[in-house]
Each structure stands twice: as structure tokens, then as C-alpha cells.
Design a protein around this nucleic acid. Sequence first.
DNA 1: CCGCATCCATTTTGATACTG
DNA 2: CAGTATCAAAATGGATGCGG
Lengths: 127, 127
Amino acid sequence: MSLSQSIQPDDDVLVVRPGKWTLIIVTLLRAETLRFSEIKRHAGGISQKMLTTTLRDLERDGFVTRKIFATIPPRVDYELTQLGQELLELADSWRVFAARNRVQVEAARRQFDAAGGEPVIRFIRPA
Amino acid sequence: MSLSQSIQPDDDVLVVRPGKWTLIIVTLLRAETLRFSEIKRHAGGISQKMLTTTLRDLERDGFVTRKIFATIPPRVDYELTQLGQELLELADSWRVFAARNRVQVEAARRQFDAAGGEPVIRFIRPA
DNA sequence: CCGCATCCATTTTGATACTG
DNA sequence: CAGTATCAAAATGGATGCGG
């Protein structure tokens, strides 16, 4: 049955985190361990709260490790785990897909909006 | 530079975010054209409003076509476009990833919660 | 420097009722 | 049956101040 191959609502792992920051952060950590402040600087306008929350969720799910250095001032390093590397591949798939199809999607949007949101195909009289 | 390979906040095409309902619906349409009510029945608890909204967004972006039959009662068929098929492949990547790693992620969560949210690694006196 | 707590604005989602 | 409208509820995002 085809439905067995459909995603189900309770597939919690799928919704890694319904926010725009998760994949951004994962891709930032692709090559190197980064400090909290470094991620914040590169992530482009994320608030401290959202960064903390997102990183904590990623840690909780086993995608990143957190290393705390009890120095003054404090220092916290984040790094992808093996599982995190796999999530990174997924994020990359999305990134590549977006790059490849952005123009086409934007064209489709313009056409749809220009048509006033009317469907492309409309049958008037089929029994 | 590694940052050029990071996802940026303004990557609008990423607007098709791994959101809950979007990928569910796309995977439901993998093999066949489905009516509105059929999707609703199989999607598992989606509200009529969310289904309408999600489908309209998918149509606007060019991922599905909408065929309206002006019969009584009305009938509307949804089908993946070529671009939608590519999105389906992406959705499948997520589905497979979730299926493969669900157990591991759930274990990580339990461990994290059991430890009271403490990080796995903590250095007390470095430098 | 890191990040938690609190308060508040915005966004998203759901429940319900109604229309063609 | 498909879709809209309205209202209520929940999740999310940001700002600020405090603490280790």
C-alpha cells in the first residue's frame, strides 16, 4: 500500500525543529567546531535565545555535542556528531534543491499570483 | 569559505521548509492523483483549513496541479508536477532518515533528559 | 562569554460555523 | 465536497535584565 510509504504526523524525528534556524546552524558546523559566539555571528540575525534553544534541542537529539570550558570568560564549543553529519547531508540536499529550483519556483509564484490564484486547470462540465 | 555552503536565513525557496504537513502531503501524492477528501482522510488529523492552505502553497510554488470538476458535489484532484516529484525525493530522504534514526534519537533524548539536561562533556579547568 | 528567565509581539494552527 | 471566515489557542520569535 502506498500509504505505508507516506510520512506520518507522529514521525517526530522528521520535524527536527520546525524553525528556520536548525538547518542553518547545522550547515555552519559542517567543517569545524564553533563557539557559541561564532555561530551567532555567522548565522545572520539570530537572537541569543533562539540560538540557545536550537542548539540545546540539537544536543538533546544527539546531533551536536557541547563542550563547556569553565574558564573566565566561559567558552562553549559545538560540534556535529556522527548523526549530526547525516543530518547535514539532508540539509545539503535541501540547500542544493533550493539553489537548483529557486528560479522555477519564483516563476511559478509570479504566474499563480498574476492569475489571481486561479488553478491552472478547470473542468466545467464532466458529468 | 565554508560559509558559502551554509544555508542563509533569506533562502526563500527553503520556504518549503521541512514543515509537518507539506512533506506528508507530498508523500501521499507519490503514486496517484488524490481528491481533497482523500488526502484529508489519510493525512492523519489535519484540519480542513491547514490542508487547504498547504495545498494552495504547493500549487502556487508549482509542486502540485489542481483540477477542479464543476460537478455536484464538487470534486478537486491534486497531482504532483515534475517539480513536485523532485520534492518528493527530498521528502523521501527525510522519511528514510527518520526511519533509520528514530531509535537512536529517542535514546539520545532519554539520556539527555535523564541527565537533567547536562552536557555530555564538561571541562573544568583548561587554561 | 554563555545562557537562563521573563515579558511581550508575531505567527501558526485548530475548532467551528457557514457558503456554493 | 471543497473552500472560506472567524475566533481562540498554541507555538515561536525577539528584547531585556540577571547570574555563573
